[in-house]
Amino acid sequence: MDYIDPHIHMVSRTTDDYETLARMGCVAMSEPAFWAGFDRGSVDSFRDYFRQLTQFEPKRAAQFGIKHYTWLCINAKEAENVSLSREVIAMIPEFLTAPNVLGIGEIGLNKNTKNESTIFLEHVELAVKYQQQILIHTPHLEDKYQGTRMILDMLMHDTRVDRSRVLVDHVEEHTIEAVLENGFWAGMTLYPVTKCTPQRAADMIERYGPERLMANSAGDWGPSKPTAIPDLIMELKRRGHTREQIHRVVYENPRRFFAQSSNFRTHDLP
């Protein structure tokens, strides 16, 4: 089955992974800017990273017929450094017209600090100014509930934010409801140990329905599995979900969400 992975960090993956994903049905993906596993020292380091995301990765993906999109920001972890964050935010507009950029992301919180919140709000300001969609990272483990509520609070406080153009990722059983019922899109991240299994994601699909809900693999430098979406497809098939229902979550929803970005071209996808 053709599918789209709306959140996968391909800079951490090999070219063989692109090939495997293509064989498994992945036709498009979006790669939010995130933490590299170490703190970068300067704004130029981010400029090079954004060149990698907007120039190199789309070419690497295209070799296997996969359409590569991206989102730009300084991630929540490095946002603790406020002055560097402001330099990065000031530089982002240089890249907003690159043809594969869908918006600002993954912005969010990590340890739910004041600095992270300040930089989150400045990213939202940037997105509003340039009419960009937003992709949100919610914190992990014990910080997720508190951080997700803080993020929703900030977004809902700003009347200029169009909730139908915001995707809140890494939702789990205790955060999904607030995200969906307030009109945002929600993404479930299938990730070993610390996040969500295909079984629990299937439970949430059955519980909340497919409206504005999607799944992703994160596929980053941590112990992750880039082919996690095919695992979810298998689980849903096993439970008797129809092809159309599965397609809605793993293809139609991300396509509809991406299509709200000005750089998105419908004919890019099969």
Partner: peptide, 23 residues
């Protein structure tokens, strides 16, 4: 059960957080 286990393992949310941070 899953939702309640998640909440058990979570830090609490304080609706006054913005004020506490001076934001």
């Amino acid at each position: 059960k899953a939702r309640r286990v998640q909440l058990l393992m979570s830090r609490e949310y304080d609706p006054a957080w913005r004020k506490n941070y001076g934001l």
